[in-house]
């Protein structure tokens, strides 16, 4: 019986210890994390400003963002070319129907091959995935530099397009 009593005492004591150790460890990590951040030259603000529109607007003179309804209207009117800025694998797994693939990481090599497929003056809508994804924005700025005028960025494009049940397709086949 003494053994069982010892065991129960130890289990209770472990639980009691956990109760103060958990906040103590979290507090230590919090204090050290914030103090080190305060001292380092590349410190980040403890409370950051993360909304996607502000971060996009801050990095470009013109607001390139296009809304989903607007993009969907241009899609059904076949008045825009969609470009997928994600890598080939993601493109093959699924993309907006008819979208061209122009992965941002390989843009200098792939751009000459795709440039001819974009009729001049046509609206170009670029997308990637994730609200903070900057690939489409970077590609939009790149295309503006290359002389394309009507370039827009559909923020978080792949996710919002799918959520709206708009047409998608898989594989490499590109239909216009």
């Amino acid at each position: 019986m003494k053994g069982i009593d010892d065991l129960l005492t130890r289990d209770r004591s472990n639980r009691r210890q956990a109760l103060w150790q958990i906040p103590a460890i979290v507090l230590m990590a919090g204090l050290v994390g914030i103090c080190v951040n305060y001292l380092r030259p590349d410190a980040i603000p403890v409370v950051g400003d993360w909304p996607v529109e502000t971060s996009m607007a801050a990095t470009t003179e013109d607001n390139l963002i296009i809304s989903l309804p607007e993009a969907a209207k241009l899609f059904s009117a076949r008045a825009a070319v969609f470009i997928d800025a994600r890598d080939e694998q993601n493109y093959e797994n699924g993309h907006i129907r008819g979208a061209l693939s122009l992965p941002w990481y390989n843009v200098s090599k792939r751009f000459p091959g795709i440039a001819g497929d974009i009729p001049s003056g046509t609206m170009i809508i670029i997308y990637c995935d994730g609200e903070g994804c900057h690939l489409s924005h970077d590609l939009a700025v790149f295309l503006l530099d290359k002389g394309f005028e009507n370039v827009r960025d559909l923020a978080n494009g792949w996710t919002v397009w799918q959520n709206a049940n708009l047409p998608v397709e898989k594989g490499n086949a590109v239909s216009s």
């Binding site: 460890i25 979290v26 919090g30 994390g33 080190v36 980040i44 403890v46 409370v47 993360w50």
Partner: peptide, 18 residues
């Protein structure tokens, strides 16, 4: 949004201490 940077600052140190 207000928790993102705080998490990014504290979580790595929590992992290190752990």
């Amino acid at each position: 949004d207000w928790l993102i940077n705080l998490t990014a600052l504290v979580l790595p140190w929590l992992e290190l201490f752990l």
